[in-house]
Computed example of a mutant assay.
Amino acid sequence: MTRTTERHRVSPIAVIAIAQLLGTSLWFSANSAAEGLMHAWGATAADIGLLTNAVQIGFIAGTLVMSLGGLADRFTASATFVVSAVAGAVFNLGFAWLAQDIATGAAFRFLVGLSLAGIYPIGMKMIVSWAPDRAGQSLALLVAMLTLGTGLPHLLRATAGELPWQWVVASSSILAVIGAAMIRALGDGPHLAPPARRHAKGRPAALRAFAIPDFRAAAFGYFGHMWELYAFWTIVPVLVAATGLATEYPALGVSGLSFLIIAAGAIGCLVGGSVARTVGSAPVAIAALILSGTCAVGVAAFWQLLSPNWLLALLLVWGATVVADSPQFSALSARSCPQDAIGASLAIQNAIGFAITVVSITLTTALFQRIGPAAVWLLVPGPLVGILTCRRLVRTS
């Protein structure tokens, strides 16, 4: 049953955001264990990219099933989130304690990705169901928590001392279950549409959204952004190691620096959400694309010439801006799509976006093994394409 805001002492938006933080810690839990996997399984940088891609592919499969099958709007959002978070926690434990090599590890990571399809887009739907009039700012908080969730395993690794990598990975499962319990206690928002029935004829609701020009522009801007984002997050640890930053900042090391760079995106999301209240979501999204693209060019061209302090500063700015546009694109899409298919529309947008990340992650990690940090040049087309395809949103906002 839907519960109203008055029954909660803590803001529902904060509850959803924190639960998202805990649930999405499953996403990069394997990346935080990269050093342990290299020692235990003889994994290479490309193998770590393969494990990341297994999550991405699982997420794509899950979002396609949810969007094209209408599942994202046929079941209550809170129930979907809870079941998905618990399932993801179980599969993540399987990766930690049952997997024996890259092949079996990839299978468990695929199942984790499948589960994440019921956490991330459903979390966005829940945000809209509680605060439809503050979607841009609220989604900024949600994606900020996703970003922290992405970096959290690196923080756990940095503070875990000599604990085996399995325990670091398993800690994400505990966090995901706590997130599920929080959403179970919260329930669904008062503005959530009743579960939709499957349409007997015609295109799936999610595909109808692409006939709307503003949704299409927001989606393609998001696709350009996704080319850059997850490939960047994937290579942050190897980028830190290859540029010598870990040697310059031994107290932080690879894991500590990786957490700081990725977690900077949470600040970028919150600042972007605040600015969007005044200028709108479209200008914030385009500004973030311009800044992140500039940082990508700066790192690719000048990483050997910059001092460690300046290089770290550039990476922190890149980390802050690379994800700041994501909640604004989601807000623009949610505002433009059919209101009886918000969950399905966001899910299909996510599915396509994450399919793009599989390509960019594969190419970038493979090229990184050959030419090192200069492989960052591959990420530059993402922001450029995003800027070119979503300009109409500024004129119509």
Rank of each mutant, 00 (worst) to 15 (best):
A14G: 00
L22I: 08
G23D: 09
L26C: 07
S32V: 12
A33F: 03
A40P: 00
A43T: 08
A45E: 14
G49M: 09
L51N: 02
Q56P: 00
F59C: 03
V65Y: 06
A72I: 01
D73V: 08
A96N: 11
Q100K: 14
A107N: 02
R109Q: 14
L114F: 15
L116P: 01
A117L: 09
M126N: 01
I127N: 01
I127W: 02
A140R: 09
T147L: 12
G149C: 09
T159R: 04
T159C: 07
P164D: 15
I174G: 14
V177S: 11
V177C: 07
A180F: 08
A180Q: 08
G187N: 07
P195N: 13
R197D: 14
R198H: 12
A209T: 01
A211T: 12
T234V: 15
P237A: 10
A241R: 15
A251M: 09
S255W: 05
V275L: 15
S292M: 15
G293Q: 03
G298N: 05
A300F: 10
L305Y: 07
N309R: 12
L311T: 01
L312T: 09
L314D: 01
V317I: 15
W318F: 15
G319V: 02
S326R: 05
I356M: 04
I371A: 06
A374T: 13
W377P: 00
G382L: 12
L388N: 04
C390S: 15
R392C: 04
R395K: 14
S397D: 14
